[in-house]
Amino acid sequence: MAATEKQLEQAKRTVRLIIERQKDANSEPYEEEFVVPYRAGMNVIAALMEIQRNPVNARGDATAPVTWESNCLEEVCGACTMVINGKPRQSCSALIDQLDQPIRIKPMRTFPVMRDLVVDRSRMFAALKKVKAWIPIDGTYDLGPGPRMAEAERQWAYELSKCFTCGACVEACPNVNEKQSFMGPFVISQARLFNTHPTGAMHKADRFEALMDEGGIHECGNAQNCVQVCPKGIPLTTSIAAMNRDINWFSLTRWLNR
């Protein structure tokens, strides 16, 4: 009996969402409100799936279902990042029970919005390429095993490796805007990660130069929102300061050595 009562009560409960939508990359954004049935333990994606199942807005009008991206559903791919109640975060790990209603959802406007909550994060990929955020091991012959990494270094470097290019830090950074070309906090931390790896360190200078280039480390203004919003708790501001030290030293010694 208790179970059915609970089920009945749950059936009556609803979730209110106000979503900032956009038909395509070039159209104006507009807001649409939805009320979807509540289920215990549901996340924002489950609520969006309810809208997909029954694309009717709060006024009872039929509408196009809200578009979003998601893959892993366990906060490791970063695809589902959106601005939920004012903070950029992953919608798969955003539980309805922990959010104030109405839940306000917006796309991350730092990136080009393709449609509804879908954004194009290719600028992040371009930034990773610019700083060579990888460890080059390919050659025309077997290069043999690389140098070993000290365990003490590996431990903190592992934390940096948790970045999944979700874009939350880029969205929250005040210095990533139309007036300047800052690539964003994550890329500085990634450059530090690959500089720390003994094989990756062979390309240190390239990464330093990329970060002294347009959109580089100097465009950071120390607002430190990045470290607050990063879902992986990556010490972005520490990475930035550590890279500041390295890059300043690099550019000074390079000049003195010429």
Binding site: K87, A172, N175, N177, K179, Q180, G221, N222, A223, V229
Partner: peptide, 21 residues
């Protein structure tokens, strides 16, 4: 010039460091 090119989002992100920024 730097103040002009900075973004301002402390209403959305009210953390102390962002206010000081």
């Amino acid at each position: 010039y730097s103040a002009y090119t900075s973004g301002y989002n402390a209403l959305q992100y009210t953390w102390a460091r962002n206010q000081l920024f």
